[in-house]
Amino acid sequence: MSTTPAGHVGRSTVRPNPETIRRAPMRTFLHTDDGVTIDSVYDPPAAVYDTSTPPSVDLVFVLAHGFTGDVDKPHVRRVVQALTQFGAVVSFSFRGHGASGGRSTVGDKEVLDLAAAVEWARGFGHSRVATVGFSMGGSVVLRHAALYGPERGGRTEAGTDAVISVSAPARWYYRGTAPMRKLHWLVTRPTGRMVSRYGFGTRIHHREWNPVPLSPVEAVPRIAPTPLLIVHGDRDGYFPVDHPRMLAEAAGEHGELWLEEGMGHAEHAATDDLLARIGGWALDAAG
């Protein structure tokens, strides 16, 4: 179903009812703190629970896709379907992507999009939230966890109980690989932004960051005590393995690193087995 946006972060005009909507998919638009409309989808768990005997951990994943993805892309839907084996899933299109409003800031204001989606996910009555992000979305889940939650002065309802970051950069402005040099051309050049808009359906903001947001590696130490999983492929063509190693070092004892042999980049490279292991980790971490 589709509804018109409401004027509050994470709130749609149709409020989730944990006793009914939780058993069926739902689609709506959310409003972020800065007023951007975010196209969002709720998928219930693949196994419908007997509400008279709820599970010990009632988990909802909030999925943050990579740059140029959106909630309807097949590679995003594949991840959604894999994670529904372990809990409900809220997926959404970042600003500037798909049917969402606004323009992409390539990882800066997208934290507000994720916060709205997390708050909406909590409205379905699930006891735990796990954020999982890929590539750009991987950097967003790290910064979101650092900025939201009671320990960090944020709103509890917009915070997360576990964080999974897949194929994320550790630092900004990285141009050390050919794919990243192409991405910077898309973002920084008028012709590149036109190619992004009409070729990839992604609308990019023309303004540079001001101020420069907290980098992923700077955000990671602020996530504790929230459980953190960092996943990266040893054949990632965008960000080499020094990126996840930097993140893991910054996380210290509260973070866990999975360096996956033979894996490439982000959702396209995540096997069904890896997604199942991520789902299992989230269940244990959020328990």
Results as ranks from 00 to 15, higher is better:
204 I>F: 14
63 L>D: 11
111 V>K: 07
19 E>C: 00
237 G>L: 04
128 R>M: 00
181 R>C: 10
72 D>S: 07
219 A>I: 13
117 A>G: 10
193 R>T: 00
132 V>E: 04
186 L>V: 01
26 M>R: 01
83 L>Q: 07
170 A>H: 10
76 V>E: 09
25 P>H: 04
112 L>R: 08
220 V>W: 07
53 T>Q: 12
199 G>T: 12
87 G>S: 07
97 H>T: 01
96 G>Q: 09
118 V>F: 10
142 L>S: 02
102 G>V: 05
81 Q>N: 12
224 A>F: 07
108 D>R: 15
210 N>T: 11
125 G>P: 01
28 T>I: 09
58 D>Y: 02
56 S>K: 05
117 A>N: 08
169 P>H: 14
256 E>S: 02
277 R>V: 03
29 F>E: 02
238 Y>F: 15
144 H>S: 08
116 A>K: 02
20 T>H: 14
82 A>P: 07
133 G>W: 08
266 A>G: 10
5 P>F: 01
16 P>Y: 00
125 G>K: 02
50 D>Y: 11
270 A>E: 09
171 R>L: 10
182 K>P: 01
257 L>R: 13
128 R>S: 14
214 L>Q: 12
203 R>T: 12
145 A>Y: 05
36 V>P: 04
120 W>M: 02
37 T>Q: 13
131 T>D: 13
211 P>G: 05
212 V>H: 08
132 V>A: 03
159 G>V: 01
133 G>R: 06
158 A>F: 06
22 R>F: 13
208 E>V: 00
281 W>S: 09
68 T>A: 12
22 R>W: 14
